[in-house]
Structure formats: C-alpha cells, structure tokens
Design a protein around this nucleic acid. Structure first.
Lengths: 213, 213
DNA sequence: GAAATCCCCACCCTTTCGGGTAGGGGAAAA
DNA sequence: TTTTCCCCTACCCGAAAGGGTGGGGATTTC
C-alpha cells in the first residue's frame, strides 16, 4: 500500500512516515503544503493520500477537493487536530474516504488505513455517529435539493431584495416568500438570508451578476 | 480640433456633424454603435469624443469606460436625452469630461467644446450644481471611503454574522455595530446588509473565502 | 484652538426577518 | 387511489435589523 503524507509540521510528518513504514506501509511521498499535496498526488498516484486539515496555503479540505476534481478515484483521508462536525460534513461532501483525529492511537490508525483496501471508511465509530447526526438534521448543504422556485427566490435574496419586494416581483404573498426562505435557510443550513446569499455566490448557485461599476 | 461623433440616430449624427463643421470643428469620424465608438476612438485618436448615452449595443457610459481604460487621456463628452443625476455621477466617476443635454442650443454647445481645450468641463452650470449636490450626499458609491473598521464589519456581515455576534467578536456594544452598519449601508448606497454583502463580494471588497465546493 | 475624522455608546422607534402552526390545491409517482 | 412533493396562503410571535438623535473621547490637521 503506497501512501502520500501531506502535513505542514515536519516533525509530525516524519514521525507519521516512520510509523507507517514500521507498519509495513510504503510512504512514497511527503509534502508540507496543500498545493504540493495536489501535485504530488496526481504525479505519484498513491493508494491513499493523508492530508492535514490545516496547511498554510490550502486547507486539507481544499486539497481534497482539487485532488478529487482531477482524479475522482483518489482515496483521501483527512487528518485533523480537533474534530468538527461542519468540517466532517465538508470532507464527506468532498468525497473524502476518512476523517481522523491526530489523537488516535497508532494501532487503530494503521488498522483504519488497512480497512480502506476493503472499502471501509477511515473513521471511528464515534465520528460516524456524529456524521449520521449531522447528516440527519443539517440535511445537505451543498446545493442540489433546492427547488427551482427556491433558487429563484435565492437570486432575489442575493440582489438584496426585501421579502416584500420579492413578493411583488414573484406575484405572491409575503407569507409565501417567508415560507420559501425558511426552507432555503434550512436546506442550505445557514442562519439568515445574508449567509444564504454569500453562500450562494461562493458555491456558484447564482451568477455574481454584472455590476462592475 | 478633431472630433469623433457616436450616436445611433443617423439624422442626429449628420446634423451634429454639419453643425460642428460649420463652426470650424473637424469631424474625423462618425459611428452609430458603442463598440464602433471605442474602436474608432482608439484608432483615430480625436481631440474630443462625443458619445450618446443610449446606443443599442453599449451605453455611452460603458463606451466611455472602455475608451478611457485603453486611453486614459481621452476627452469624452457624454450626450444625453434627459439628464439624470445617477447617470451624471457615473459619467464623472468614469472620467467623462462633460455631460450635455441634447436640448442645449448650438452656440452654447460649441462654446462648451472649445472650453475643453482650456481644461474646462463641458457641463452647464445647472448640471454642475446638481453634481455638487449629488456628490455631497450620495458620497462615493464605488468602494474606497470605507474605514478599516467598517471593512472589518463588512467581512463579518459577509460571513452572515448577526449584529450581536459581531459585537461579541469585536468586543464592542451592539449599538456600535449598528452605528457602523448604518454608515456602511450609506457609503455603499445599498438598502440592507445582504446587499452590502453581495456588493462587497462582487467588487472584491472582501475575499470570497475558501469554500468553493 | 478649532475642525475633522473616527470610534464608541445610549435610548427610542418602526420595520423586517425568522420561524412556528395550520391549512388548501395541484401534479406526479407509487 | 393514496402518497408525496411543491407551491401557495394565513395568523401570530419574538427577535433582529435599520435608522434617528444625542453625546463622549481620541487623534490628526490646519
């Protein structure tokens, strides 16, 4: 099993590599930056890529996304200092094969990695539990599940329209507007319309519009 | 003095050209579209470029912008059917040297154009008055005038933070947050925080952050 | 010293949002 | 034919936002 290790802390990286080699796993590359991780992953095509969540240039999450964008079969496991449900969801959404705390003990860690060969997720049962939880009631942030009508509303929200104005534009009651917005906020798992708007722009749910003046 | 005339109405254009020639001004080019105006301006390098505000493909304003982007010293005068304060501000922001109504009488018009050679603005005193007015209380929409603190607030607004949360983060009272936001909305000439947020992203006032999944 | 500018805070008020509950109606899928 | 999903609506409520006035304090500039 050939591994690539990406972590900005040299000491941790070396230690991890030594540990992996001792366990009979082959570390074919080590990098300290996110960009380098992407490059190395695509060049070396390791069986498993271990990326640290926090790297100076690119988050592990972003590295994961870029690697999978160019190589969808890549098996990427994200390592994190402190587990975070939002991060976890992001990693899962991005197609990560695992999300492991750095506090994990060595044997369990190695066992997780071997499990990957059998299609298992590199994730503790505790983490999985939290994932299920998060999945169940912050149902899918990404995009998708918005209906056409909701996207239509979202565009107007991005424009900074008030509920009343939206109601006029769409020729419905203000109550209906509120109804839709409630659903939008829930689906996008955001707190308010402003967050919905910026989220929509960030993920490209709406085009940023031509207001370059 | 060499002039370029850009207007989509042939009759008006011809009439204007005749009038200018009769006054001893040299019309070295006539075009009927905004794109053509830009091209001709850059090719012919006239002393003054007269552009109609409303043209089918490109507004006179947009033509002005493109011409000055490629040739910053260009002297562009915008002709308009009905004067509009917002338009006026836009023209001034874009570096226009004048903003004239088509209702102006010929002598005054010619006098304005000659004034350009002495560095005068091609604008009636009435229009100038309205400009001062507009400048004073819709102070600069573009971006700039936000203070550091305000930009800091704006970033948090973009993140979707509530006033209370912003107050906590910045260690100030919620009243202070409102105070700043009020100023931000005024300076950006937007109606609410959501519009401020999307505007900020559009004009690059804040980085969109790394959540491009 | 006076004038600007910026940051901070308070009180008050109205409007807007967000969210909950509780429906009706239509269209498509099971 | 139920069920499901989407869209629409109403009413109510508390919280948040927006905006106005008024003021204090600090710094810089003229």
């Amino acid at each position: 099993m050939k591994l690539l290790v990406a972590d900005d802390h040299t000491l941790f990286r070396d230690g991890l590599a030594t540990l992996l080699e001792a366990a009979g796993l082959q570390v074919i590359g080590q990098v300290g930056l996110g960009e380098a991780a992407v490059t190395a992953a695509l060049a070396l095509r390791p069986d498993v890529i271990l990326v640290d969540m926090s790297m100076p240039d690119l988050s592990g999450l972003e590295a994961l996304r870029r690697i999978r964008a160019a190589w969808p079969e890549a098996q990427v496991v994200v390592l994190t200092d402190a587990e975070d449900d939002t991060e976890l969801l992001d990693v899962v959404d991005a197609g990560g094969r695992g999300y492991l705390s750095k506090n994990l003990n060595a044997e369990e860690f190695i066992r997780m990695l071997h499990g990957l060969e059998r299609g298992e997720a590199a994730m503790t049962r505790q983490t999985t539990g939290r994932l299920l939880n998060a999945l169940s009631h912050t149902q899918r942030r990404t995009t998708g599940h918005l209906t056409e009508r909701e996207v239509e509303l979202l565009r107007l929200i991005v424009e900074g329209c008030s509920n009343r104005h939206i109601a006029q534009v769409l020729q419905v009651s203000e109550n209906t507007v509120k109804y839709h917005i409630k659903n939008i906020l829930q689906k996008l798992a955001v707190q308010n319309r402003t967050e919905a708007a910026t989220h929509a722009i960030r993920v490209g749910l709406v085009r940023t519009g031509a207001t370059p003046g």
